[in-house]
Write a protein that binds this DNA or RNA. Structure first.
Lengths: 210, 210
DNA sequence: GCATGAATTGCGTACCGCGCAATGTGTGCT
DNA sequence: AGCACACATTGCGCGGTACGCAATTCATGC
């Protein structure tokens, strides 16, 4: 949601209850889609099934998501969007590479799983790896998060230039994907370590930047 | 297509005419989809329209592509796949960062446009930027090319490790996307220079590697 | 030529995404 | 409390899509 829309919304001042319901419904739908796909395979999941699991009409499902794939990928996008915020929370003097590593690893802390069951990431990764039909929506969600992270980087390093921030942002998510994929295929060591190592490779070039 | 499948295909030894026809049909369908989408907007393009433009049935279109979006993105994937091959063609002693830069920039050379009209990349980029519905398929195609490039890097730098090659590969395409996007938004200087600059930022960390 | 296997095609089906209008429901004001 | 308004949900309907299946066409190698 753009800053303008957010401002309009704050003017409209929708009460908390209404908005909370929306958020909850969206989350429930995405979660139901994910869980059903994980259990029965994406191809076997029908939209009415998802809607029924949450207790809404199929039409409502399509008010929130334009496809099953998008619903599932939205969960990952929600997680990934936290990286930008985490970077904004890092102390000012911290070197960029350390701040980015810490920010990227935030989402692997158990405490970060708001609403998501423990071990969710593993299941999600497995599902995406198993279902090629999810790749498009997943990558789109990641690209959105990437843009957001680029903005956060640009705020932090104003004289770096737009090119710099976008390259670094895409590198962070690229490294993360590489780390997760590596761990997913080899399963040696912990997931966090694989991602940390991948980030170290990618961020080697920006050691001096603050 | 994997090396194994390629080998099998060479054993099956389908005559050249048949295979050439398939390639041509696939290309024509993708090109027609792209051209129609560029002219009338993706939302206005219907599958029968694309099929008719090429002179095949709609069913045949779906034998080649599962959606309009995939057909269009296939063109970009075809181009991107050339990066891996270009890297394999670079001289052995060349440092990795130089080799990768040269390989990535190969596809911007006018000579590289096999079958694609001049200025195609600009039009394609504009279309993708204008049509969010294309992002998923486009990113999926890029991810495929990324895997291929990672393989090429691993062949070139065997002791780098799988993590290294994947991170670097995703960085190359990430930098390229950042460069293209930057140029697409600012239009100052040439596209090639923007991509070269983006690659320089991303590849700064692997200066010494051969 | 002719057998063979692959590619194309027509048809049928299940399903999807969304526009539209009607209905339900939380919210703020009086 | 009651009321009016805005927004969310829902049912309906339609155009369109993806794909399985079986029939047909067509290039290929003998």
């Amino acid at each position: 949601m753009c800053a303008y829309c957010r401002a309009v919304e704050s003017l409209t001042a929708a009460g908390p209850r209404r908005e909370w319901n929306k958020r909850q419904t969206r989350f429930d739908l995405a979660m139901a889609a994910f869980e059903l796909a994980r259990r029965h395979g994406l191809g076997a999941v029908r939209v009415p099934q998802i809607a029924e699991a949450v207790g809404v009409s199929t039409r409502t499902f399509n008010n929130y998501f334009s496809s099953r794939e998008q619903a599932i990928a939205w969960l990952a996008g929600r997680r990934a969007a936290a990286v930008g915020d985490a970077l904004r929370d890092r102390p000012d003097g911290e070197p960029l590479d350390r701040a980015l590593t810490a920010a990227a690893l935030t989402q692997y802390r158990p405490a970060a799983q708001d609403g998501l069951p423990a071990g969710w990431l593993r299941d999600f990764r497995d599902l995406v790896a198993r279902e090629p039909a999810l790749h498009g929506a997943y990558l789109t969600a990641m690209a959105d998060a990437e843009r957001d992270l680029a903005t956060a980087i640009a705020e932090r390093v104003p004289d770096g230039g737009q090119l710099f921030s976008q390259v670094v942002a895409s590198m962070v998510f690229g490294a993360e994907r590489a780390g997760v994929r590596y761990w997913s295929e080899h399963r040696d060591g912990t997931l966090v370590d694989a991602v940390r190592q991948a980030l170290a490779v990618g961020l080697a070039g920006i050691g001096g930047v603050r």
